[in-house]
């Protein structure tokens, strides 16, 4: 929990009044809605409306066949397993790329101005539309895209490679493209906080650049790595847009279950899958939280 330095005394308007509008927004549009999601997930429903009567129907239907069909996976488990696979791949790639970029910015760029400029270069795409950044892969990876034109021009393949777009590959690629920033920013922040005297001490003790990286910088960057990991993993877990746009409608995901059920205008089953997703997300965060105490590091 970051503590902003307080003035000696606190005159003027009391803090809780100043924070009230901010708090009310979250009460009305976040806390209360989550309570409604949990409540409605236990409601009954028919084809056109939800019925306020307690039932676990939405949950039992969600997990239908999960025990009886073993060893075959039910839809819910299969979908979560597939989403977890994407989480792992995207996490590993964004971590490797994000760490390297942050390491370069923090330790190899000399002037503070240049550091800020280059960091800004990494940030600007984050302020533009994700969907546009997804569709921008179409002219490159499509059937007649630049990559296929190049491959065929070089006679590496005789017909266009089909798995480049609307595939698991393009989904993972888009995730890395869109969300590596969420790794770069917190890791860069952690690295900038490392006391430069520690680096010098390691250098004076005869550490090689590699030893410095693995014994000093990596352990001290752990908080940033943990925060970045939470962002990336929860984004992939809850995403449905990237999976739909880049997967060509063929790839299931945990977030897409909710969207699909919502398209059928069935609130209780959608709410039940939202609760399942929330629980899964919370489990992941608590595991990551064990690795590092996130509260201390923001």
């Amino acid at each position: 929990m970051p503590k902003a330095r307080a003035p000696l005394e606190s005159p003027g308007v009391p803090g809780w009044i100043q924070a009230m509008p901010f708090g009310l927004v979250f009460a009305a549009f976040f806390v209360l809605p989550l309570a409604f999601v949990i409540m409605v997930s236990f409601w009954d429903y028919n084809d056109y409306e939800m019925i306020p009567a307690f039932t676990t129907r939405s949950y039992t239907e969600s997990f239908e066949g999960c025990l009886t069909d073993l060893p075959n996976l039910c839809t819910m488990l299969a979908t979560y397993l597939s989403t977890a696979k994407f989480c792992l791949i995207v996490w590993a790639l964004t971590l490797a790329i994000g760490f390297t970029v942050a390491y370069f910015l923090a330790f190899y760029v000399r002037s503070a101005t240049m550091q800020m400029v280059l960091f800004l270069v990494c940030t600007i795409p984050f302020w533009t539309s994700n969907v546009i950044r997804m569709i921008s892969w179409i002219p490159l990876l499509g059937r007649n895209g630049l990559v296929n034109q190049a491959l065929m021009g070089a006679h590496i393949v005789n017909q266009p490679v089909e798995w480049l777009l609307y595939s698991q590959f393009s989904v993972a690629l888009a995730f890395v493209h869109l969300f590596t920033f969420f790794m770069v920013a917190p890791i860069f922040n952690s690295m900038m906080r490392i006391d430069r005297r520690l680096i010098e001490a390691a250098y004076d003790s005869g550490a090689s650049a590699w030893q410095m990286l693995t014994n000093v910088i990596m352990p001290l960057s752990k908080p940033g790595i943990a925060i970045g990991s939470i962002f990336v993993v929860t984004i992939v877990m809850g995403d449905y847009i990237t999976f739909s746009v880049m997967g060509g409608g063929q790839i299931a995901s945990a977030g897409k279950i909710i969207a699909t059920r919502l398209n059928a205008l069935q609130f209780p089953p959608a709410a039940a899958s939202a609760v399942i997703l929330l629980v899964a997300t919370m489990v992941i965060i608590s595991v990551l939280n064990r690795i590092v105490d996130i509260r201390k590091e923001l």
């Binding site: 976040f30 209360l32 809605p33 939470i230 929860t234 809850g238 609130f267 939202a274 997703l277 997300t281």
Partner: peptide
């Protein structure tokens, strides 16, 4: 914590909750 949770809870869940509300 609520503000940070709002970043982490999947957007589709928040959206669904507001719609139900």
């Amino acid at each position: 914590y609520v503000a940070v949770a709002s970043l982490i809870v999947p957007s589709i869940v928040t959206s669904l909750g507001i719609a139900i509300e």
